[in-house]
C-alpha cells in the first residue's frame, strides 16, 4: 500500500465499494450494456480453474478479452441460446471488500462473492473470491482485470447462463 492517509483510504474504500456494488447490481439485473461500459478496451475477465496465475497458458472457465466479452453478451441477448432464454435469475452479495494495493490510478481490490441462482424452481449457491484491477479515470473507475475464483472451480460445476 502506498502512503495514503487513513481518511484517503476510507474514502477510496467507499468509492471502490460503491463501484463494485454497482457492477454487481448491473450483473444481477442483466444490464449488460451498462456492464460493458465499465471496462477498459484491454480488460480481461477471467475465471480460472486451477491455482496458477499464468492464465494465458492454462485452461480457464473463461478468458474474455473485449471481443469475447461482447460476443458473450451478444449471445446472452440474442435469444438463440436456449440456456440463456430465459437465463437463471441471480442475487449476489459482494462483501469483505479490501484494497490490496493503490498506486497512482491503479487500484487492486479483492472481495468475497456469494451468488444464488434460480431456474427450473431450483436454487444453486456459488461462492468465490473476486480480484479486480481498477483504473481511475475522469469517467470514474474502469475494470482492467477481473478474476473470479470459485471455491470449487476445479470441481464438478453446472452450466452458467450469467456472469460472476
Amino acid at each position: 500500500m502506498t502512503e495514503l492517509s487513513q481518511i484517503d483510504t476510507r474514502s477510496l474504500l467507499a468509492d471502490v465499494t460503491e463501484f463494485i456494488w454497482t457492477e454487481g447490481a448491473y450483473l444481477d439485473a442483466k444490464d449488460y450494456a451498462a456492464w460493458l461500459d465499465l471496462w477498459t478496451d484491454t480488460g480481461l475477465y477471467i475465471m480460472p480453474i486451477d491455482e496458477g496465475d499464468d492464465y494465458a497458458n492454462q485452461l480457464n472457465l473463461c478468458y474474455d478479452n473485449d471481443k469475447m466479452r461482447r460476443d458473450r453478451i451478444d449471445r446472452f441477448n440474442r435469444g438463440f441460446s436456449i440456456s440463456s432464454a430465459p437465463p437463471a435469475q441471480t442475487v449476489r452479495t459482494l462483501s469483505r471488500i479490501k484494497i490490496d494495493n493503490a498506486a497512482g490510478d491503479v487500484i487492486s481490490v479483492s472481495c468475497a462473492e456469494h451468488l444464488i441462482e434460480d431456474k427450473f424452481g431450483r436454487q444453486r449457491v456459488w461462492a468465490g473470491n473476486a480480484y479486480y484491477t481498477l483504473i481511475r479515470t475522469d469517467d470514474g473507475f474502469k475494470i482492467d482485470r477481473k478474476i473470479v475464483r470459485l471455491l470449487n472451480s476445479a470441481g464438478m460445476l453446472n452450466s452458467f447462463s450469467y456472469l460472476f
Binding site: M47, L59, N60, L61, C62, Y63, M68, D71, R72, R75, S81, I82, S83, S84, L157, N158, S159, F160, S161
Partner: peptide, 14 residues
C-alpha cells in the same frame, strides 16, 4: 476449448 466447452462455454451450457 473455452469458447465452446464447459460451464461458461458458448456451446456446453446449451
Amino acid at each position: 476449448h473455452e469458447h465452446f466447452q464447459g460451464p461458461m462455454g458458448f456451446g456446453s451450457p446449451d
